[in-house]
């Protein structure tokens, strides 16, 4: 068990099932996602089957079950972005990356997340990659944006 996990379990030493969500949030904050090991640990700690924890966690959009990619793409699906076509944008992103929202590409380069509203409605439709905002994204531009990060990864190395 990792030290981080250890300290989370300590924090919730005498916790019951009602602490499940805060525990999951802590784990995600720590690891960026909910790993199988972490879910199993929490399950043993709270005496809840892993399938139930997974069931609860998938009810909420905030939890992910795969490691974040090197570049984490958030696509805004708030009202303004929706009106400006973010649904199509999400589809194009999913197609080009070959993953669905919540997943990470095989090479570990990109992960995709749908968020409710980033609060940048003036820039709709907007995506953010590791915090860098891309405004008024048209679907034809998706490929170019992804290429920017692919080149950056290449020049920085390390993947």
């Amino acid at each position: 068990m990792s030290r981080a996990m250890d300290s989370i379990l300590k924090k919730y030493r005498r916790a019951g099932i009602d602490s499940l969500i805060p525990m999951l949030q802590d784990v995600q904050a720590e690891q960026g996602y909910l790993s199988k090991d972490a879910v199993a640990e929490i399950g043993r700690h709270l005496k809840v089957p892993a399938s139930k924890i997974y069931g609860v966690a998938t009810f909420y959009n905030q939890f992910r079950f795969e490691k974040l990619g090197r570049y984490h793409i958030q696509i805004c699906r708030g009202t303004a972005c929706h009106v400006k076509g973010s649904a199509t944008l999400q589809k194009v992103l999913e197609q080009q990356l070959g993953v669905k929202a919540g997943q990470t590409t095989r090479d570990g380069l990109f992960s995709l997340e749908v968020v409710a509203c980033i609060g940048a409605c003036g820039l709709a439709p907007v995506i953010s990659v590791n915090g860098e905002f891309h405004a008024s994204v048209k679907q034809e531009e998706v490929g170019k944006i992804l290429d920017v990060y692919r080149r950056r990864a290449e020049s920085e190395g390390g993947v």
Partner: peptide, 19 residues
């Protein structure tokens, strides 16, 4: 408890842990 409800709304499904 090998299986459970997961997801929500019209994307609800029955699945194992981590599907």
């Amino acid at each position: 408890s090998a299986i459970s409800f997961a997801g929500r709304g019209c994307r609800t499904f029955i699945g194992t842990a981590f599907n």
